[in-house]
Design a protein around this nucleic acid. Structure first.
Lengths: 196, 196
DNA sequence: GTCCTTTCCTAGACTTCCTAGGTAAAAGCC
DNA sequence: GGCTTTTACCTAGGAAGTCTAGGAAAGGAC
């Protein structure tokens, strides 16, 4: 038997994320990954439980990487500047790492989410960004959900070719950010923070 | 040999959509569907070319059904009322038909989209809804993209358990619609239709 | 060095996808 | 009605992917 490939769960996960970026997350298979790593498919089960476990690991890894990039982009910014930086970093990650991005969108067990540093960091970053708009707690939740929905939706349609009109997509995204800022500045609620 | 099951491509597609609503679109298989219909898996290839063809057929069917429901909801409405009706019908469809909804979101060949009555109808309905805001053509495209992104993103997170906070999701959606209306009424652009 | 752990392998069972060819149900024609 | 043609169903089987079990040997600990 030849020397061991020196695999670890971490290395397997990174290789899977790289492969997913190349072929698409949906097309990621244990057997394909094994070929990529130069081992037999059965060998990977020393490091991962099954395909679902592999997918979850990629999701956790990708979420952490994405949070790091968003964090770097919004550092030192507030208000509309932070919103725009967050949004652009979000979309940039999705465009550059389509497989990783798709992984961030799968449903995960609550325990996995709770233990994922990337998920927690994303929450913190989002909370920090939204703070400048001085919304009531309940409105902050609503607003964050609106932002996350828009960012994901946009990236989804961009990735799946859903934007068929000839209109420049970069321009549409810039307008969307402007529009979201307008909405946040004029949040349709009567209990803005600090106002009784 | 026993009597034929009397399958047609249409019947196969509907059965697939129903099954997808029950088990999830991602879990839809030719073999599973064959079991559902009481035939052998190989028999289905008289009616569909392959799994990708089946998925595309479900997508086209679901898009048409969804467009019908949105169309019925917005009939006779304009402005914010139409926006709200559209949004609620969209989300209702996604919640009631998770498999069908997921099918509407897959990337399809441009020829398939071009030939799909549901896609065309969705475009018309969206155009009609956005008309009340009297935006310039370019801004209309941007605004439609924002709306579609938000609706899809919201439905996606709702379906994948991405909204972890205890805040009522119905309320968040209602607020999101209000916020989108505010954004549309105050679209961040200087060339509103009719204004030089 | 020895002993223990664990990573790799082979083997194989199972599922899914899909093609090829055959049979008989169903449709079409007279 | 009978006869012919079409085609929807079947069986058979190969390819690919998933995953378990057990064994061999690489690598780590002492």
């Amino acid at each position: 038997m030849t020397p061991r490939a020196g695999l670890t769960a971490d290395r397997v996960t990174r290789a899977a994320a790289d492969l997913a970026d190349r072929i698409g997350f949906a097309a990621l298979t244990v057997s394909g990954l094994a070929r990529e790593l130069g081992v037999r498919d059965a060998s990977l089960y020393s490091h991962i439980r099954n395909l679902a476990d592999l997918r979850a690991r990629v999701a956790v890894l990708a979420t952490a990487e994405m949070a790091d990039q968003i964090g770097a982009a919004v550092a030192g910014r507030a208000g509309k500047e932070a919103l725009a930086a967050f949004a652009h970093a979000y979309r940039r990650f999705a465009v550059r790492h389509p497989g990783r991005y798709a992984a961030t969108q799968i449903a995960l067990d609550p325990e996995v989410v709770a233990a994922s540093p990337g998920h927690r960091r994303t929450l913190e970053l989002t909370g920090g960004m939204i703070r400048a708009y001085r919304l009531a707690e309940r409105d902050q939740v609503d607003a964050v959900r609106l932002l996350r929905s828009t960012f994901h939706g946009f990236s989804h349609f961009e990735a799946t070719g859903g934007f068929l009109h000839g209109r420049d997509v970069d321009a549409s995204f810039a307008r969307a950010i402007d529009a979201l800022h307008v909405a946040l500045e004029n949040w349709p609620s009567h209990d803005k923070e600090g106002t009784p």
